[in-house]
Design a protein around this nucleic acid. Structure first.
Lengths: 221, 221
DNA sequence: CGATTATCGATTGTCGACAATCGATTATTA
DNA sequence: TAATAATCGATTGTCGACAATCGATAATCG
C-alpha cells in the first residue's frame, strides 16, 4: 500500500507559508535556518529546502551567504501582484466562460452564494476566505493544470497582501456587487466579457488596497 | 569586494535546464540523483536542490521516493504552455504599449530587425533564437519584476517545445509577417491592440506546433 | 585622523552517511 | 496454481559536520 503522507520538507514549507500569509512572520522579517530548524524540530537541510520552495513562490527573498527574509510590502508589490492576477485569472475566466456546463455552473454559483452569505455575516475572516475561494474556484474550473499551478503561488501572495491590508485597515467593500459582473458574464457564456470583468475587478481591488496602504504609510510616518 | 559567482546549485540547475531545453535530455527521460551527481561532479544534495528548482519551473516531474523525470510532450502540454504565454505576454504588451518611450522603441525595433535578418538568413538556430528573443524583449521592457520572473520559467518551456518541434519538423513560417502586427500595435501606443496581437500570434503559433506534433505522432505510430 | 587591512562571529553553502520507501522478485501457503 | 507475504536492490528523504563567505569591528599605517 502506498503511503502518501507529506515529506518533512513539504510540511515545513506549508507551515512557514501559512505563517507568512497570515502575517505571523512579518514583511521583511529575517529568517535564519538554524532558528527555524529548532522551532520546527527538523534538520537544517530540510528547512533549507522548504525555504527554497517559498522562494520559488516569491514569498521570501534570499541574499546569498547572507540570509533569507520575508518579502516586503510596497505599492509596487501590490501593483505587480494584482496585475499579474488579472492576467492569469482573465485567462481562466475566458476558458471557463467558453466551457460552461453543469459542473462549472454549480461551482461558480456555490462560490458566489458563499460570498453573499459572508457579506451579510459579521465574520471578517470568513469574508476574506470566501473572497479568496471565489477566485480560486474560477481558476480551478478552467481545466488548465499549468495555470492552476502558477496561480497557486500567486494566490498565496494575494492572500498575504489581502490579509495584511485587512488587518490594518478592514475594508467594507460590497463583495456581492464587486463579483456579480464576473458571475454574470461567465453564466452568460461570454468569454470576452468574463475576462474583462475579472480585469475590472482586479483594478478596483488594487485601487482599494493601495488606498489602505498609503493611509497606513501616512500614519506610521 | 563582493564576489557574485553562481553557487554550485545554480550552476547545476543552469546546466540541466540547458540540456533539457535543447533536448539533450529527452522528454520523459528518467533522472537519478546519483548519476547526475557523478556527471556534474558535485554532491547529491546539490543536484537535489537543482532538481527542485527545475521542478518549480515545471520542466521536470518528481514522484516521491521514486524519482525525477523530464516532463513529457503532449498536445495538452503545448496548449497549456502557449495559452499561458499568451496571458502573460498579453499583459506585457499592454504595459509596454502604454509606456512607449525611446528605450522601448529602440528595444522593440532592434528585436524586430534581428527577426528580419534571421528570416532572410539560412541559419535555423538563429531563427529560433531571434524569435525567442523578441518575445522575451517585450516582457523585459514591461517593467514588471514579478512578470519577468514568472515568464522566465515559462519561456524555458516554450523554448523547449519550440526546439523539440523544430528538430523534428522544421517550420518555415514567415517570422516577419507573424510578428509585425505586434510591433505596429506597440509603436502605435495601442495597448488593447497590442494585447490582442500577442494573443493572435500565440494562437497561430500553437496551431503551427500542434500540426507538427500530430504529424510526428502519426509517423512514429 | 582617515582610510585601508586583518580579524572574528554568525550564517549560509556543500557534502557524505544513514534511514525510509518503493517496485520487482521470490518465497509461502491455502 | 493463484493469491498473498517476505525479501532485496535501488533510489530518494533526512540529518549533522565541515568549509566558504559575509558584515561588522578592531587593528594598522600613511
Amino acid at each position: 500500500m502506498k503511503i502518501d503522507k507529506l515529506s518533512f520538507v513539504d510540511r515545513a514549507a506549508a507551515q512557514l507559508r501559512n505563517e507568512i500569509v497570515h502575517g505571523r512572520l512579518l514583511p521583511a522579517e529575517r529568517l535564519t535556518e538554524i532558528v527555524l530548524s529548532e522551532r520546527l524540530g527538523t534538520g537544517r537541510g530540510t528547512v533549507r529546502a522548504a525555504l527554497s520552495i517559498l522562494e520559488s513562490e516569491d514569498l521570501i527573498v534570499r541574499q546569498p551567504y547572507s540570509g533569507w527574509s520575508v518579502r516586503d510590502v510596497s505599492e509596487k508589490e501590490l501593483w505587480e501582484t494584482y496585475t499579474l492576477r488579472g492576467a492569469l485569472e482573465g485567462l481562466a475566466a475566458r476558458l471557463v466562460a467558453a466551457a460552461v456546463d453543469e459542473t462549472i455552473e454549480a461551482g461558480i454559483t456555490a462560490a458566489f452564494e458563499r460570498l453573499q452569505s459572508a457579506q451579510s455575516g459579521k465574520d471578517g475572516a470568513e469574508r476574506v476566505d470566501a473572497d479568496l475561494n471565489f477566485h480560486r474556484t474560477i481558476v480551478n474550473l478552467a481545466g488548465h493544470a499549468s495555470l492552476t499551478r502558477q496561480y497557486f503561488g500567486l494566490s498565496n501572495k494575494v492572500e498575504w497582501l489581502y490579509r495584511w491590508s485587512e488587518t490594518h485597515w478592514p475594508s467594507r467593500i460590497d463583495l456581492t456587487s464587486w463579483h456579480r459582473p464576473i458571475v454574470e458574464a461567465i453564466l452568460a457564456r461570454d468569454p470576452f466579457a468574463a475576462e474583462r470583468a475579472v480585469q475590472v475587478h482586479g483594478e478596483a481591488s488594487l485601487a482599494d488596497d493601495l488606498r489602505d496602504f498609503s493611509e497606513l504609510r501616512r500614519q506610521s510616518a
